[in-house]
């Protein structure tokens, strides 16, 4: 009976620690992903504004620049454009983003800003597109600096909370 108790206690502490670790990691990865989106969009802006390359090519190049779900978002969107099976670039971007939402650690506010890219892609003038892309990058930059502050404040706290909370609960239950 005692053995089962101890096994349960270890599992509880392990689960609590894991929750704390995963949550803290997510808090740390959010600014990284926001920064990664900014870099990709800066590249897209250059390709669109100066190179006047097609959107699918710009997205493919952006996808090669970034690893992980951010690069995958651009890759999926480019793939959809290349197959010509979507009605607009906006739809391709939405679907690309949607395909990676589970792998991204972004909050609702971040995703809203990224979804705001959709209508920009339909603009006819590259200058206007560049201006809007710059605006989106600025908003992402603001979200990133807020995310860094948030991560600094809460990442360690969450990790400790996970471990200590689980320990406290274990003690109470034992």
């Amino acid at each position: 009976m005692n053995a089962i108790r101890w096994i349960g206690a270890v599992l509880l502490v392990g689960a609590g620690s894991l929750w704390g670790y995963v949550t803290a990691e997510a808090l740390k990865r959010r600014p990284e992903q926001l920064s990664s989106f900014q870099r990709s969009l800066e590249l897209v802006k250059s390709e669109v504004g100066y190179g006047l390359v097609a959107l699918s090519t710009a997205w493919e190049r952006a996808s090669r620049q970034e690893d992980g779900p951010v690069g995958e978002t651009f890759r999926q969107a480019a793939l959809l454009l290349n197959t010509g099976e979507v009605e607009s670039a906006q739809r391709a971007w939405e679907l690309g983003l949607q395909s990676q939402v589970a792998n991204l650690v972004l909050c609702r506010e971040d995703l809203e800003v990224l979804r705001g890219l959709g209508p920009v892609l339909m603009l006819m003038s590259s200058q206007e597109q560049c201006r809007h892309l710059e605006l989106i990058c600025t908003r992402l930059r603001m979200l990133e600096s807020a995310a860094i502050k948030h991560a600094t404040r809460y990442a360690q706290l969450t990790l400790n909370l996970g471990i200590l909370g689980a320990l406290a609960l274990t003690i109470v239950l034992l």
Partner: peptide, 16 residues
């Protein structure tokens, strides 16, 4: 609109 998108590979700005 869709024909224009397809003709420009969804990039009308590149053909401005």
């Amino acid at each position: 609109e869709l024909t224009l998108q397809l003709m420009t590979r969804y990039s009308p700005y590149a053909h401005q």
